[in-house]
């Protein structure tokens, strides 16, 4: 911390360290970008619509939900509502990391928040936890390779979807849960980590079994956040001791 602060690196070096940290994310997301492209074509989306969806929505899970519903006999607003339901968790992300971005200009915030996907949020939180500033250069260094990769993979998947090898045998379909687990574990030193994880796990599983996907994400998240807020005073006391 001390030496780094004194040296005051240039924005370009922050950008490059963001790019370096984006590599595992790009790898974890890669099969899903290709899979999305392939599935979108199978569901009748044109190449333009497939790439447009990845470039503007930029939210994997909700894109999958969207293409499932495009062929369903339902009203367009229901499709939009389902997409919003999957993405509702982002409200919590921007509220959480927005607290650390006072040094960004309003324009930087308006631009930066577009890229606030799950891994982007998790990496930014980890950086804060390690006592380091979230500079705009670092944030974009992390965001841009993942974004460009995602849009490019959707395009490739749409063009060459039939050539994708057996994803199951290579474990590609389960790579994202493993990645998310490693992110969950990286926050384990936070106060109330275990009770929050326990309550969110139970709530999301019950919601998944009863109400069904995609609502389990928001329900599980809200359950854990509520618990964190409820037990707040206890946690602060423990920290002070």
């Amino acid at each position: 911390m001390s030496a780094e602060c004194l040296a005051e690196p240039r924005p370009s070096s922050y950008f490059l360290s963001g790019v370096r940290e984006s590599i595992p994310i790009t790898l974890a997301v890669l099969p899903f970008g290709l899979l999305f492209g392939a599935l979108a074509t199978e569901h009748g989306l044109s190449l333009f619509e497939t790439v447009l969806m990845s470039a503007t929505l930029y939210a994997g899970a909700s894109q999958m939900v969207g293409i499932e519903l495009f062929d369903a006999p339902i009203a367009p607003w229901v499709v939009v509502l389902s997409i919003v339901a999957v993405n509702f968790r982002h409200v919590l992300y921007s509220a959480t990391i927005g607290r650390y971005l006072d040094h960004w200009t309003p324009l930087q915030r308006a631009f930066g928040f577009f890229f606030l996907i799950d891994p982007q949020f998790a990496e930014a939180e980890r950086r804060m936890e390690n006592g380091r500033r979230i500079s705009f250069a670092w944030y974009m260094g992390l965001a841009l390779p993942v974004y460009i990769g995602w849009v490019g993979e959707s395009w490739l998947g749409a063009l060459f979807g039939r050539l994708i090898p057996d994803a199951h045998a290579f474990g590609l379909d389960f790579i994202l849960p493993i990645y998310f687990l490693s992110m969950v574990m990286s926050f384990r030193k936070r106060p109330l980590w275990l009770p929050v994880v326990g309550v969110s796990a139970i709530a999301s599983i019950i919601a998944y079994r009863t109400i069904g996907s995609p609502w389990h994400i928001s329900i599980g998240a809200i359950a854990g956040v509520m618990l964190g807020a409820l037990l707040a005073s206890t946690a602060t006391k423990e920290q002070e001791q």
């Binding site: 509220a95 799950d118 998790a122 992110m183 929050v196 599980g220």
Partner: peptide, 8 residues
């Protein structure tokens, strides 16, 4: 609690 809750 957001990161642990959402990612879980």
């Amino acid at each position: 609690a957001v990161p642990a809750a959402v990612l879980t």
